[in-house]
Amino acid sequence: MTPPHDDSAIVATLLAQPDRAIFLDFDGTLVDLAATPDGVRLQPGVREALSRLAAHHDGALAIVSGRPVDQIDAMLAPLVLPVAGVHGVERRGFDGQLHVAPTPDISPVLARAQSLAVLHPGLLVEHKRGAVALHYRLAPELEQLCVREMTAAVQACPGVLLLHGKMVLEAKPAASDKGGAIAAFMREAPFAGRVPVFAGDDTTDEAGFATVQQAGGTGVKVGAGASVAERRLDSPDALRAVLLATPQPEPGVAYDDIV
Protein backbone atom coordinates (compact mmCIF):
# COMPACT_ATOMS: atom_id res chain seq x y z
CA MET A 1 0.00 0.00 0.00
CA THR A 2 1.28 3.48 -0.84
CA PRO A 3 2.18 5.40 2.36
CA PRO A 4 -0.29 8.20 3.18
CA HIS A 5 2.40 10.84 2.61
CA ASP A 6 3.36 9.53 -0.84
CA ASP A 7 1.83 11.62 -3.64
CA SER A 8 3.08 9.44 -6.50
CA ALA A 9 -0.21 9.53 -8.42
CA ILE A 10 -0.41 13.33 -8.17
CA VAL A 11 3.23 13.79 -9.18
CA ALA A 12 2.76 11.46 -12.15
CA THR A 13 -0.17 13.59 -13.26
CA LEU A 14 1.88 16.79 -12.89
CA LEU A 15 4.78 15.41 -14.91
CA ALA A 16 2.42 14.27 -17.65
CA GLN A 17 0.90 17.73 -18.14
CA PRO A 18 2.59 19.23 -21.23
CA ASP A 19 2.60 22.81 -19.91
CA ARG A 20 5.05 22.03 -17.06
CA ALA A 21 8.72 22.90 -16.68
CA ILE A 22 10.44 20.06 -14.82
CA PHE A 23 13.39 20.56 -12.47
CA LEU A 24 15.04 17.63 -10.68
CA ASP A 25 17.73 17.40 -8.02
CA PHE A 26 20.21 14.54 -8.48
CA ASP A 27 21.67 12.98 -5.30
CA GLY A 28 18.98 11.58 -3.02
CA THR A 29 16.34 12.34 -5.65
CA LEU A 30 17.21 10.69 -8.97
CA VAL A 31 19.87 8.45 -7.40
CA ASP A 32 20.20 6.96 -3.94
CA LEU A 33 22.75 8.52 -1.61
CA ALA A 34 26.02 6.62 -1.27
CA ALA A 35 28.89 6.56 1.21
CA THR A 36 30.91 8.84 -1.09
CA PRO A 37 29.82 11.19 -3.90
CA ASP A 38 31.45 9.04 -6.58
CA GLY A 39 29.67 5.94 -5.28
CA VAL A 40 26.21 6.84 -6.60
CA ARG A 41 24.77 4.90 -9.53
CA LEU A 42 22.04 5.75 -12.03
CA GLN A 43 19.49 2.96 -12.07
CA PRO A 44 18.70 1.21 -15.39
CA GLY A 45 16.08 2.98 -17.45
CA VAL A 46 16.32 6.36 -15.70
CA ARG A 47 18.41 8.01 -18.43
CA GLU A 48 15.91 6.89 -21.06
CA ALA A 49 13.00 8.05 -18.92
CA LEU A 50 14.58 11.51 -18.60
CA SER A 51 15.00 11.67 -22.36
CA ARG A 52 11.32 10.76 -22.87
CA LEU A 53 10.20 13.31 -20.29
CA ALA A 54 12.33 16.04 -21.87
CA ALA A 55 10.82 15.28 -25.28
CA HIS A 56 7.33 15.30 -23.79
CA HIS A 57 7.96 18.83 -22.48
CA ASP A 58 9.74 20.12 -25.60
CA GLY A 59 13.05 20.23 -23.76
CA ALA A 60 11.81 21.97 -20.60
CA LEU A 61 13.58 19.63 -18.17
CA ALA A 62 16.68 20.57 -16.18
CA ILE A 63 18.82 19.03 -13.45
CA VAL A 64 19.42 21.37 -10.49
CA SER A 65 22.18 19.95 -8.30
CA GLY A 66 24.92 20.67 -5.83
CA ARG A 67 27.27 18.75 -8.11
CA PRO A 68 29.27 20.55 -10.81
CA VAL A 69 27.77 20.51 -14.29
CA ASP A 70 30.51 18.26 -15.68
CA GLN A 71 29.76 15.58 -13.09
CA ILE A 72 26.07 15.55 -14.01
CA ASP A 73 27.02 15.29 -17.69
CA ALA A 74 29.27 12.32 -16.94
CA MET A 75 26.49 10.58 -14.99
CA LEU A 76 23.88 11.10 -17.71
CA ALA A 77 26.05 10.63 -20.82
CA PRO A 78 25.26 10.44 -23.66
CA LEU A 79 22.14 12.41 -22.64
CA VAL A 80 22.85 16.15 -22.30
CA LEU A 81 20.29 18.27 -20.46
CA PRO A 82 20.12 21.85 -19.19
CA VAL A 83 21.88 21.76 -15.81
CA ALA A 84 22.43 24.04 -12.83
CA GLY A 85 25.46 22.95 -10.81
CA VAL A 86 27.00 23.91 -7.46
CA HIS A 87 23.60 25.24 -6.29
CA GLY A 88 23.37 27.64 -9.20
CA VAL A 89 26.97 28.87 -9.40
CA GLU A 90 27.14 27.07 -12.76
CA ARG A 91 24.16 26.98 -15.12
CA ARG A 92 23.96 25.68 -18.68
CA GLY A 93 20.80 26.64 -20.51
CA PHE A 94 18.91 24.81 -23.24
CA ASP A 95 20.98 26.75 -25.78
CA GLY A 96 24.18 25.20 -24.41
CA GLN A 97 25.60 28.44 -23.02
CA LEU A 98 27.32 28.09 -19.64
CA HIS A 99 26.71 30.90 -17.15
CA VAL A 100 29.07 31.18 -14.17
CA ALA A 101 28.21 33.40 -11.22
CA PRO A 102 30.87 35.45 -9.38
CA THR A 103 32.20 33.65 -6.31
CA PRO A 104 33.89 34.92 -3.13
CA ASP A 105 37.27 33.66 -1.97
CA ILE A 106 36.73 30.34 -0.18
CA SER A 107 40.39 29.35 0.18
CA PRO A 108 40.33 29.76 4.00
CA VAL A 109 37.37 27.36 4.22
CA LEU A 110 39.08 24.88 1.91
CA ALA A 111 42.28 24.98 3.95
CA ARG A 112 40.40 24.40 7.21
CA ALA A 113 38.35 21.52 5.78
CA GLN A 114 41.44 19.86 4.32
CA SER A 115 43.32 20.20 7.61
CA LEU A 116 40.42 18.54 9.40
CA ALA A 117 40.34 15.70 6.87
CA VAL A 118 44.06 15.06 7.36
CA LEU A 119 43.44 14.57 11.08
CA HIS A 120 40.35 12.44 10.53
CA PRO A 121 40.64 10.10 7.50
CA GLY A 122 36.89 9.35 7.59
CA LEU A 123 36.16 12.87 6.34
CA LEU A 124 35.98 13.72 2.64
CA VAL A 125 36.51 17.19 1.15
CA GLU A 126 35.06 18.24 -2.21
CA HIS A 127 36.40 21.40 -3.81
CA LYS A 128 33.97 22.79 -6.40
CA ARG A 129 33.80 26.07 -8.28
CA GLY A 130 33.33 28.61 -5.47
CA ALA A 131 32.28 25.97 -2.92
CA VAL A 132 33.67 23.45 -0.44
CA ALA A 133 31.78 20.39 0.82
CA LEU A 134 32.87 18.44 3.88
CA HIS A 135 31.30 14.96 3.99
CA TYR A 136 31.17 13.05 7.28
CA ARG A 137 28.96 10.11 6.27
CA LEU A 138 31.84 7.72 6.99
CA ALA A 139 32.49 9.37 10.37
CA PRO A 140 29.10 10.48 11.77
CA GLU A 141 30.55 10.79 15.26
CA LEU A 142 32.49 13.83 14.00
CA GLU A 143 29.38 15.84 13.10
CA GLN A 144 29.66 18.39 15.89
CA LEU A 145 33.37 18.90 15.27
CA CYS A 146 32.72 19.43 11.56
CA VAL A 147 29.89 21.88 12.27
CA ARG A 148 32.03 23.86 14.69
CA GLU A 149 35.04 24.05 12.38
CA MET A 150 33.11 24.83 9.19
CA THR A 151 30.96 27.43 10.95
CA ALA A 152 34.05 29.24 12.21
CA ALA A 153 35.67 29.10 8.78
CA VAL A 154 32.61 30.48 7.00
CA GLN A 155 32.13 33.28 9.51
CA ALA A 156 35.57 34.55 8.50
CA CYS A 157 34.62 34.60 4.78
CA PRO A 158 32.20 37.36 3.73
CA GLY A 159 29.63 36.33 1.16
CA VAL A 160 29.83 32.64 2.01
CA LEU A 161 26.92 30.62 3.42
CA LEU A 162 27.09 27.24 5.18
CA LEU A 163 24.48 24.66 4.14
CA HIS A 164 23.69 21.72 6.41
CA GLY A 165 22.81 18.77 4.20
CA LYS A 166 22.54 15.02 4.71
CA MET A 167 25.85 14.14 6.38
CA VAL A 168 27.54 17.01 4.58
CA LEU A 169 28.36 20.65 5.28
CA GLU A 170 28.79 22.84 2.24
CA ALA A 171 30.22 26.35 2.10
CA LYS A 172 28.93 28.13 -0.99
CA PRO A 173 28.33 31.68 -2.28
CA ALA A 174 25.41 33.21 -0.38
CA ALA A 175 24.21 34.89 -3.58
CA SER A 176 23.63 31.61 -5.45
CA ASP A 177 20.98 29.01 -4.66
CA LYS A 178 18.75 26.52 -6.44
CA GLY A 179 15.80 28.89 -6.32
CA GLY A 180 17.76 31.50 -8.24
CA ALA A 181 18.89 28.92 -10.78
CA ILE A 182 15.30 27.80 -11.40
CA ALA A 183 14.15 31.42 -11.72
CA ALA A 184 16.87 32.02 -14.34
CA PHE A 185 15.77 28.96 -16.33
CA MET A 186 12.17 30.19 -16.18
CA ARG A 187 13.17 33.39 -17.98
CA GLU A 188 14.50 31.41 -20.94
CA ALA A 189 13.08 29.16 -23.65
CA PRO A 190 11.77 26.50 -23.49
CA PHE A 191 10.95 26.97 -19.78
CA ALA A 192 9.40 30.45 -19.97
CA GLY A 193 5.62 30.56 -19.72
CA ARG A 194 5.36 27.08 -18.21
CA VAL A 195 4.33 25.98 -14.71
CA PRO A 196 7.39 24.76 -12.75
CA VAL A 197 7.70 21.50 -10.81
CA PHE A 198 10.81 20.82 -8.70
CA ALA A 199 11.69 17.57 -6.91
CA GLY A 200 14.47 17.46 -4.32
CA ASP A 201 15.35 15.71 -1.09
CA ASP A 202 17.45 17.94 1.14
CA THR A 203 17.56 21.26 2.96
CA THR A 204 19.59 22.58 0.02
CA ASP A 205 16.45 22.20 -2.14
CA GLU A 206 14.15 24.32 0.02
CA ALA A 207 14.95 27.52 -1.90
CA GLY A 208 13.91 25.73 -5.07
CA PHE A 209 10.62 24.57 -3.57
CA ALA A 210 9.83 28.11 -2.44
CA THR A 211 10.63 29.55 -5.86
CA VAL A 212 8.44 27.19 -7.88
CA GLN A 213 5.53 27.49 -5.46
CA GLN A 214 5.69 31.29 -5.49
CA ALA A 215 5.41 30.98 -9.28
CA GLY A 216 2.26 28.86 -8.98
CA GLY A 217 4.08 25.56 -9.40
CA THR A 218 4.71 22.56 -7.17
CA GLY A 219 7.56 21.51 -4.88
CA VAL A 220 8.01 17.77 -4.34
CA LYS A 221 9.99 16.65 -1.30
CA VAL A 222 11.59 13.22 -1.75
CA GLY A 223 11.95 11.36 1.55
CA ALA A 224 11.45 12.33 5.17
CA GLY A 225 12.01 15.67 6.86
CA ALA A 226 10.29 19.00 7.30
CA SER A 227 9.79 20.95 4.09
CA VAL A 228 7.87 23.81 2.50
CA ALA A 229 7.15 21.52 -0.47
CA GLU A 230 3.46 20.90 -1.09
CA ARG A 231 3.89 17.33 -2.28
CA ARG A 232 5.84 14.35 -1.00
CA LEU A 233 7.36 11.18 -2.42
CA ASP A 234 8.46 8.42 -0.08
CA SER A 235 11.90 7.81 -1.62
CA PRO A 236 14.05 8.06 -4.75
CA ASP A 237 12.54 4.70 -5.71
CA ALA A 238 9.10 6.34 -5.77
CA LEU A 239 10.34 9.13 -8.05
CA ARG A 240 12.07 6.66 -10.35
CA ALA A 241 8.86 4.62 -10.59
CA VAL A 242 7.01 7.77 -11.65
CA LEU A 243 9.70 8.64 -14.21
CA LEU A 244 9.76 5.14 -15.67
CA ALA A 245 6.02 5.42 -16.24
CA THR A 246 6.31 8.77 -18.08
CA PRO A 247 4.41 8.93 -21.35
CA GLN A 248 6.12 8.29 -24.65
CA PRO A 249 6.54 11.37 -26.86
CA GLU A 250 4.82 11.57 -30.20
CA PRO A 251 5.96 8.86 -32.63
CA GLY A 252 9.31 9.70 -34.16
CA VAL A 253 10.15 12.45 -31.62
CA ALA A 254 13.12 12.06 -29.26
CA TYR A 255 14.89 14.57 -27.04
CA ASP A 256 17.92 14.51 -29.35
CA ASP A 257 15.64 15.73 -32.16
CA ILE A 258 14.81 18.98 -30.35
CA VAL A 259 18.26 20.05 -29.13
Results as ranks from 00 to 15, higher is better:
Val86Glu: 11
Phe26Met: 09
Pro37Cys: 13
His164Phe: 08
Glu170Gly: 12
Gln97Pro: 02
Ile10Thr: 15
Leu169Ser: 07
Asp58Thr: 07
Gly96Arg: 11
Gly208Phe: 01
Leu138Met: 12
Pro247Ser: 13
Asp256His: 14
Asp202Cys: 05
Val64Ala: 10
Gln97Lys: 14
Leu79Phe: 10
Ala245Ser: 15
Arg137Trp: 04
His56Glu: 02
Leu61Asp: 04
Ala84Ile: 07
Leu243Ile: 08
Arg112Pro: 01
Tyr136His: 10
Phe191Thr: 08
Val109Trp: 00
Val80Ile: 13
Pro68Ser: 10
Thr103Ala: 13
Leu162Ala: 07
Ala226Met: 04
Val132Gly: 08
Leu142Met: 13
Leu110Asn: 01
Gly66Glu: 00
Leu233His: 03
Glu230Ala: 15
Arg92Glu: 00
Ile22Gln: 04
Leu98Asp: 06
Thr246Ile: 13
Arg67Pro: 01
Ala34Tyr: 13
Ala156Val: 00
Val222Glu: 06
His127Trp: 01
Leu161Asp: 02
Glu48Ser: 12
Ala189Glu: 11
Gly159Ser: 00
Ala210Cys: 00
Asp95Gly: 01
Leu110Trp: 00
Met1Phe: 05
His120Phe: 02
Gly122Lys: 12
Val160Cys: 05
Lys172Asn: 02
Arg194Cys: 06
Ala152Asp: 00
Val40Asp: 03
Tyr255Ile: 10
Tyr255Trp: 03
Val100Ile: 14
Asp70Leu: 14
Pro78Trp: 08
Ile22Ala: 09
Leu14Asn: 00
Phe94His: 14
Asp58Met: 06
Arg112Met: 10
Ala224Tyr: 01
Ala62Trp: 00
Cys157Thr: 08
Pro4Val: 04
Asp38Thr: 13
Pro108Thr: 09
Glu48Leu: 12
Ser51Lys: 03
Cys146Glu: 02
Asp70Tyr: 11
Val242Asp: 10
Thr151Met: 05
Ile22Val: 15
Thr151Leu: 02
Leu239Trp: 04
Val80Trp: 07
Arg232Asp: 09
Ile106Cys: 08
Ala35Glu: 14
Asp95His: 08
Phe185Ser: 05
Leu244Met: 14
Arg112Glu: 13
Asp38Asn: 14
Gly59Gln: 06
Ala84Leu: 13
Val64Phe: 01
Leu161Cys: 02
Leu169Arg: 12
Gln214Val: 09
Lys172Leu: 11
Gly165Pro: 02
Leu134Val: 03
Ala117Ile: 03
Ala224Gly: 10
Val125Glu: 11
Met75Ala: 15
Ile10His: 14
Leu76Asn: 06
Pro4His: 12
Val259Phe: 02
Phe209Asp: 02
Thr203Glu: 00
Ala74Thr: 14
Lys166Ile: 03
Ala189Cys: 07
Val80Lys: 15
Phe94Leu: 08
Asp32Ser: 15
Gln97Asp: 07
Val118Gln: 14
Gln71Met: 13
Pro104Gly: 10
Phe209Ser: 07
Arg240Asp: 04
Asp234Cys: 09
Pro251Gln: 11
Asp237Arg: 09
Val69Thr: 14
Asp205Pro: 04
Thr218Asp: 07
Lys221Ala: 05
Asp202Gln: 04
Gly219Trp: 12
Asp105Cys: 13
Gly180Lys: 09
Ala153Met: 05
Ala55Tyr: 06
Val11Leu: 12
